[in-house]
Amino acid sequence: MEAQYVRWRPAAAVRPFADWYTGYEQHGLPGRHRGLPSPYLTLIVTLDEPLRIAAHPDPATPPGRYDTLIGGLHTTPAIITHDGRGAGIQVALSPLGARALLGLPAGELAGADLDAACLLGPLADELRERVCLAAGWPARFRIVDELLTRRADPALAPAPEVSFAWRRLCATGGTLSPAELAGETGWSGRYLSRRFGIEIGLSPKVAARVARFDRARRRLQASGGAHPLAALAVECGYYDQAHLSREFSALAGVPPARWWAEEFRNVQSPLELTAADSGHDR
């Protein structure tokens, strides 16, 4: 399998709710891909074949095909199958923006995969139709900017303490303990955990595990799979390499080396696009 990825920073109006857009194209032999736990909700808009999910993070959800999809935070991988080709746009949504963009807290989406129309209504179909007709990645990303800006209601936001705690947890890569995090908000650990469950969908302790794992797997990916695992474990706050491998197996379903070999053997590094690449100012 060969794959190419293109990254784009959202428009200023969207950045409080989404960190980046990724355009992807792949072709080759049929296979499968692991959709890993991360600190982001996922919005996927396909450009050709529907997204085929063979196994969801929630095992009670049957396999399905999706032209557009929204997925909540989760702690086990989704298994995505393909016939050798596929293209689409993946939007990394902050759980802090779930109320503003989706109309409900991220906690109500924990572990779930839904047709995006269930939450976005007709906008989901409009989004897919327009990006499919657009020529080139910059034009497609600008359509995503336009429609998410239209959809967003900045007045809908979690409590400031939840937003602060979530940003601190992500900025520190999950290395702050729940007690430290609660202390910085001025809330009790129990109250912070309850509010996290509502607004984020994970407890502070589990969210820290996901953030730490996400940092480790991204560093491993950026190194081309060459980052020594013992050093990676220390850098990302694990006790040792064995601890890193156990957490990887728990959250990705396989150890680090196997994950890398299965997912990225023929994948190019993401190409970062900016306004200069499309001939327009942003």
Results as ranks from 00 to 15, higher is better:
G173W: 01
T81P: 04
P59R: 01
T76Y: 12
C236Q: 06
L273G: 04
T81M: 04
G136T: 02
G121T: 07
L93P: 05
L102D: 01
S94V: 04
S188T: 14
S177V: 02
G88Q: 02
I44R: 01
P30T: 00
G253C: 01
R218V: 05
L244M: 07
C132L: 06
L93I: 07
G121L: 07
S249P: 01
W8S: 01
R190H: 05
S193Q: 14
L229E: 11
A60K: 13
G201V: 02
A78T: 03
R209M: 03
S223Q: 02
A135I: 12
A207M: 10
H243K: 09
H33Q: 08
A100E: 00
L181A: 01
P158S: 12
A252C: 12
L101Y: 11
A261V: 00
D19L: 13
H74Q: 15
P59V: 03
W187M: 15
H56W: 13
R9M: 07
P37L: 01
L244N: 02
R34C: 08
G88A: 04
A222C: 09
V6M: 07
A98T: 06
Y191W: 12
T68D: 08
S38A: 15
D214L: 00
G97S: 04
E49S: 08
C132K: 11
A261K: 09
G64L: 09
G174V: 03
I200W: 04
L104W: 01
H280Y: 15
A3M: 14
A159S: 10
C118T: 14
L192S: 03
A182G: 06
E2W: 02
E247H: 08
R140C: 10
G224D: 01
M1F: 11
A216L: 00
R151E: 05
A233F: 03
C170Q: 15
H280Q: 15
D240I: 01
T22D: 04
A242H: 11
W166R: 07
A106G: 08
L69D: 08
D115T: 12
R282C: 02
A98M: 03
R151D: 03
T81I: 09
A233S: 05
I80N: 03
A87M: 04
R32Y: 07
A87W: 10
I53V: 15
R85A: 10
L101N: 07
G197L: 08
F141R: 05
L169M: 03
G237C: 07
